Simulated scan of single mutants.
Amino acid sequence: MDAGDLATWVGSTFAAIAAGATLWTLKSQRDQIAEQRAFISEQSATLELERAELRALAAERRSRQAKRIAMRPQLGGSRGPRNALDIELEGYDRWHVDIANRSDEPIRDVLVRFGDAYNAGVAVILEAAEMPESGRRVVPVHIVGAGHTARFQSPPWGSQVTVDNNRPVVTFTDAAGSRWILDEHGELRGAPGA
């Protein structure tokens, strides 16, 4: 064997070994990168679940007091005005709406609206247990204490159709300063801009 051939053969062998080591290193690095990506992806998913849970807890905490406010609408009225034939009309001609604060803190700026155009005409604060009238208040009611109820009354309307077309909705501010809207079906939502 020639010395030149031996040197070429040894050089080629070392080059092959170096190429193999380089390929093995690249494969190892690719495997590590793939493992790191999988780990990062798993961590990201875990963090997103934790964020979603924290958001849900914050939303629950934010709406906890508002969910303890109840609206009880009732149709009211007695005999209506006489018609052209001087016959007394019977039926309802207004809304009576009780807003019960079942929470441990007061609510503020309580206003009942009927349809898009009518605010409650009269408001009375009722005590929690006996519910006697404790005095007429200005509408909107500035504060309804914990465990108290406020009764609102619509203006009297001449027809049942007008009453039916002007359903009650209450807006109020909770102790944390968030503004809420509660409809007659118990659907609660944040007020726009609140």
Rank of each mutant, 00 (worst) to 15 (best):
A15C: 05
D104Q: 06
L57M: 11
A58F: 08
D93H: 13
R151M: 08
R136G: 03
Q160V: 13
P155R: 10
Y118H: 13
V112H: 01
G190A: 15
P140M: 00
A84P: 05
Q43W: 11
E130S: 15
E60N: 08
I33E: 03
V170L: 01
A150S: 00
I99K: 12
N83K: 01
E88G: 14
I33F: 05
I17P: 15
I87K: 04
K27A: 06
Q74G: 04
A176G: 11
D183V: 04
I40D: 04
A146F: 05
H185V: 10
E35P: 00
R72T: 06
G4P: 11
A194I: 02
E130I: 11
A120S: 02
R102N: 07
T8M: 08
I69E: 00
T22G: 08
A52L: 08
S41P: 02
A176P: 11
D183N: 04
I125Y: 05
W9Y: 08
W24A: 13
S159T: 15
L75W: 05
E50S: 14
T171G: 00
R179Y: 00
R151P: 00
F39E: 08
A175E: 07
R108S: 03
I99E: 03
H148A: 12
E88A: 08
R37C: 11
E42R: 12
G11I: 03
E42V: 13
W24S: 13
P155G: 05
Q160M: 09
R64I: 15
A45H: 06
I99P: 01
L75P: 10
G76F: 03
K27P: 09
L47T: 13
G186I: 01
E133S: 12
V122N: 15
A84L: 15
L6S: 03
D93E: 10
G121V: 14
F172Q: 01
R51P: 08
A84R: 09
F152G: 03
E88S: 11
A19R: 07
L23F: 07
L6N: 02
T13Y: 07
A129W: 11
R136H: 04
A38K: 01
G91V: 00
G20A: 04
W9F: 15
A19S: 10
W24Y: 11
A117F: 10
Q43H: 12
V10A: 09
N165I: 15
P106K: 02
W9V: 11
R94M: 12
S78N: 07
